[in-house]
Design a binder for these strands. Structure first.
Lengths: 342, 342
DNA sequence: CACCTGCTTCTACTCGAGTCAATAACCCAG
DNA sequence: CTGGGTTATTGACTCGAGTAGAAGCAGGTG
């Protein structure tokens, strides 16, 4: 008597497919699908058990590419940010990843490094990869938009506070946030408050400058010096040095990002100044780094988690709704010590 | 005379497929493929021009899902790290993204948050998504490995310095790096040097502890106090407080991560101590944050870019080579001021 | 016994692109 | 004018999974 292996030995060479499972369980491929996704048709309990067993035994994993092809959705979203190693964006990216994972979506991360060409390349690449949508935290804006329209991919602009016609966007109230911070500095008695403004590649107007102006105007103060540098530690450092060298040295500085504030802090320390006694400081973003600088930074905290969730659900949940939506979150002042408190 | 549109109007409703392009250009679908990927067969220049034109006119983008299905490769790699908002890992992630993009691969980012269950879930998810490989920067190690073997996916362990049989790995020389840093502190005359050790979920031995021990032993010094806390700012802060309260307060501290050092810095500042005069500090990682703390941290810099590139090319370039490879990069001491220099 | 109903399962087509074997078109030497 | 050899193009099959429509198989009725 020979080896009567009527039920063929598994021997799953290469990846296991639905067909292998079907053969092993003695059913058709359709049932396997039904079992795997609680499919559109019911399956008898006994059969289901057999299939589940086969799946486990063979270590079957449905092929996501095939699934994506058939369903027209990859259950993947793309994220384009300037720089994942910038602490604020890394926080945002983490929050987006969490929110996406919550809905069963994976995250394709790309960095544009503040480079327009790279940003467009990333966008094109994501479009070709059939992502179900893109969350774009752009440095440029205008030039990228037409590209997006043509790609017929849902896009949500994250960290974007100006209205972008035709696109959903999620941002914070830059004007109010900045205003609160500057008002707080004014409350400490400062009258010469500088602005360390971050520079965007695109030159759309940034609400933080407006907020600073409004707070000063409301208090009847004249404008302090403005320095424009990139949104980085290095940029802040340069800004700090320039402000120290200025004719009328300010007694307080409002920086448009925590990273810049950290750079300013360094410039101030190097000059042997005491913070907040000699110069007070407040900034914007609310990244973790701000909490652990010395002294801890008073900063306007962006609700990154909520914003990320809003962006993801606008992208996924919203099935091409009516008009484009512009969500603006309030930013809250997080008082610590760099401003003069405590 | 009526509208004699013999060549049908495009009117591409829904996504444009290869078939649409073929019809528009008056060729078969095969040629379109050949043109798109400089295919395995040549195409006459005139035909190619027609096809290129059609592609441009219709805005055709090849469907990545279909491509992935047919080719069995998604040109995507997965990255699993504990926390993308940890500055060292975000640096690493950025470097990995760059290296992958260079080779035409996209990056699927997942955070495990130091959570074993989440890490396994991410790994499974990536496997199901047909990524061509996974770069894993794990907190746990042992428990995850069997899972990976079964998933038949190429894996490279990044930021992992112990040999993992059966897996390629890329890491730094923790022992030598830590030793250099501690030796440097000893060079400044310190004899009571504490260790702020990061704790891993998995309890594999960390070379940084060994390096610290070796440096002390070589100098004939007795062991300083050890405090074990997580690899975070908060962990460092707690460690700093505990060390200050210790019976024999150390005059120098070696921290196993920049983040911990930042936390320690805060504890020291709060205690009104001067750094490095009262207590000197050196740490490990070489993240950007270390450069802008106050005082700037002397730290052992991990060559993140080189490591990321090595990991990616081990994953992509290496076509299932012979034995598993263990790359160990040297880490270089970056001298700044927290140690007592300058 | 014929027939309907309801439940389960199967067959077969589809998604979009890669690519081989076969065919068509052409050129030149004999 | 024909045969051999290029070169260009095409038809058709494939990858793995989702699912509509057909088919099988009870059990119950008239």
């Amino acid at each position: 008597m020979y080896s009567m292996t009527t039920s063929a030995v598994p021997a799953p060479r290469g990846p296991v497919t639905r067909k292998d499972v079907a053969r092993f369980a003695g059913v058709s491929t359709a049932v396997v699908s039904y079992v795997v996704n609680g499919g559109p048709k019911k399956v008898a309990p006994a059969t289901e058990a057999k299939v589940q067993d086969a799946i486990r035994r063979l270590g079957y994993r449905p092929n996501a590419a095939a699934r994506a092809l058939k369903l027209g959705s990859s259950e993947t979203i793309g994220l384009v940010i300037p720089d994942n190693s910038n602490s604020f964006f890394s926080l945002l990216a983490h929050a987006v990843e969490d929110a996406a994972a919550e809905l069963g979506y994976a995250l394709l991360l790309t960095n544009s490094d503040g480079n327009l060409a790279k940003e467009l390349r990333n966008l094109r690449n994501l479009a070709a990869r059939q992502v179900d949508g893109v969350i774009l935290s752009s440095v440029l804006m205008e030039p990228a938009l037409p590209e997006l329209e043509s790609a017929e991919i849902p896009v949500v602009l994250l960290n974007h506070s100006a209205d972008a016609p035709g696109f959903d966007s999620v941002g914070v109230d830059l004007v109010a946030g900045a205003k609160t911070a500057v008002e707080h500095l004014i409350g400490h008695g400062h009258t010469n408050i500088a602005l360390a403004m971050g520079t965007n590649t695109g030159n759309y107007y940034d609400g933080r400058e407006e907020g600073w102006l409004q707070a000063l105007a409301a208090a009847g103060l004249s404008e302090g010096p403005i320095v424009r540098t990139p949104f980085t530690r290095e940029g802040g450092y340069a800004a700090g040095k320039r402000l120290l060298a200025a004719a009328s040295r300010p007694t307080a500085i409002f920086a448009t990002s925590d990273l810049q504030a950290v750079g300013i802090l360094r410039a101030l320390h190097e000059a042997g100044l005491s913070i907040p006694r000699d110069i007070a400081l407040a900034s914007f973003d609310g990244s973790a780094e701000a909490e652990y600088s010395w002294p801890p930074l008073t900063t306007v905290k962006q609700p990154a988690k909520a914003m990320a969730e809003a962006a993801v659900s606008a992208l996924i949940g919203a099935h091409r709704h009516h008009e484009s939506e512009h969500l603006i979150f309030p930013a809250e002042l997080q008082v610590r010590q760099s401003c003069g408190c405590s």
